[in-house]
Computed example of a mutant assay.
Amino acid sequence: MHIADLEGLAIHYRDDGDPDGAPIVFANSLGTDLRLWDKVLPLLPQGFRYIRYDKRGHGLTQTTRPPYSMGTLVRDAEILLDHLGVRDALFVGLSIGGMIGQGLAVKRMDLVRALVISNSAAKIGVPSMWQERIDAVNRDGIESLADAVMERWFGRAFRATEELAAWRNMLVRQPAEGYAGCSAAISGTDFYTPTSGLRLPVLGIAGSEDGATPPDLVRETVDLVPGSKFELIRGAGHLPCVEKPEDYARILTDFIKETGHG
């Protein structure tokens, strides 16, 4: 467990693998912490430096007063990677993490040499939808949204397993202020123009049963970048790294090799 106090924010992160290896950075979805990647990391190649962190208001990272802006979340990732001496990373972002990755790649070309936009998009939903969610969390807590979120996160088969309870618990135990703050950041983000200007290797990953960012939405975003790739994981929802870790790791490993990372 590592905590870095950076610009007044205590950021929780993990730094695993080979400290001298090429860096691969993971950013989590709304409502999850860095354990999101626990199933995938053991399946990835050795010799790399694997960095994970809890974004603002999630996991063991400090919660600040909402709302948050996407620029703030991008800055949090930027100062952490600078603190860790990271350059030329392969950045894997899922959901809001994919938005953070897009923003970071636009802002700091020296930090991101390849980008995975997983179950994410340049724009997700509309402000009215996010405001309803924020109001519900502020009024009734995350528990009031939990069952609906599980249907978006996971395919039917996974929702019938005992493991579902653990992920539901992870969601409802996130700070309500952090969830609301990050929801506001998503609501205010439209990266279509900046993302269309990116010129780096990009991979899009989608789940066929994703109720939050459907495959067509993910594909529409990655198609903004010339030469990008798109992979669909069948039978998975919004968190395919949890439901189909072998498929996810295979796709990610292929991308690592294709980009010559490391």
Rank of each mutant, 00 (worst) to 15 (best):
S118G: 15
G103Y: 00
E132A: 15
R159K: 13
L84I: 08
F191W: 09
A157C: 06
E177C: 05
W153A: 11
M170W: 04
R168A: 11
T63R: 02
R156D: 15
G103T: 01
W167I: 02
W130P: 06
D76H: 07
T193F: 05
R152A: 12
A121E: 01
A180H: 00
A146Y: 03
R152L: 11
F191N: 11
H83C: 13
R156Y: 13
C182K: 01
N119K: 03
D140V: 06
D190H: 09
I142C: 09
A136Q: 15
R65F: 06
D140Y: 10
G71D: 14
G71S: 10
M170T: 14
R152E: 08
V149R: 08
A148N: 13
G125I: 05
V92T: 10
S69R: 09
A184R: 00
G188D: 15
A166E: 14
I117W: 01
S187M: 10
A166L: 13
L171G: 06
G155L: 06
R108N: 09
F158S: 07
G98T: 04
D88I: 02
S187A: 15
R113H: 15
R152Y: 04
M129N: 10
L111D: 02
S128G: 12
L94E: 08
A180W: 01
R65L: 11
G141I: 05
A166Y: 08
D140F: 10
F158H: 06
Q102R: 06
E143C: 00
Y68H: 10
A136C: 13
G93D: 06
I124W: 01
S183E: 03
R156G: 02
E143Q: 14
E177N: 13
L164S: 05
A148V: 12
L90H: 05
L164T: 10
R173K: 13
V74S: 07
P127D: 12
I117M: 13
S118K: 05
R168V: 02
A180Q: 00
A165W: 00
V116C: 12
V74E: 08
L164C: 08
G155A: 11
A165I: 00
D140M: 07
R133V: 01
E177A: 15
S187R: 07
G101I: 06
D110C: 04
D110Y: 06
R75G: 09
R65E: 15
R108H: 05
L115W: 03
E151Q: 12
R113K: 15
V116T: 08
D140N: 14
G155K: 07
N119C: 15
V86Q: 03
A114I: 06
R75T: 13
G98R: 02
I134H: 04
R159V: 12
L104E: 04
L145T: 08
T161V: 13
P67S: 00
Y68T: 05
L84P: 07
G178P: 03
G93S: 12
A89I: 03
G71P: 02
G141D: 08
D190L: 09
E143R: 11
M129G: 11
E143P: 00
F91C: 09
V172Q: 07
S187W: 02
R108A: 11
R152H: 10
G188M: 04
V112W: 00
D82A: 14
A89S: 14
Q174M: 15
I117E: 02
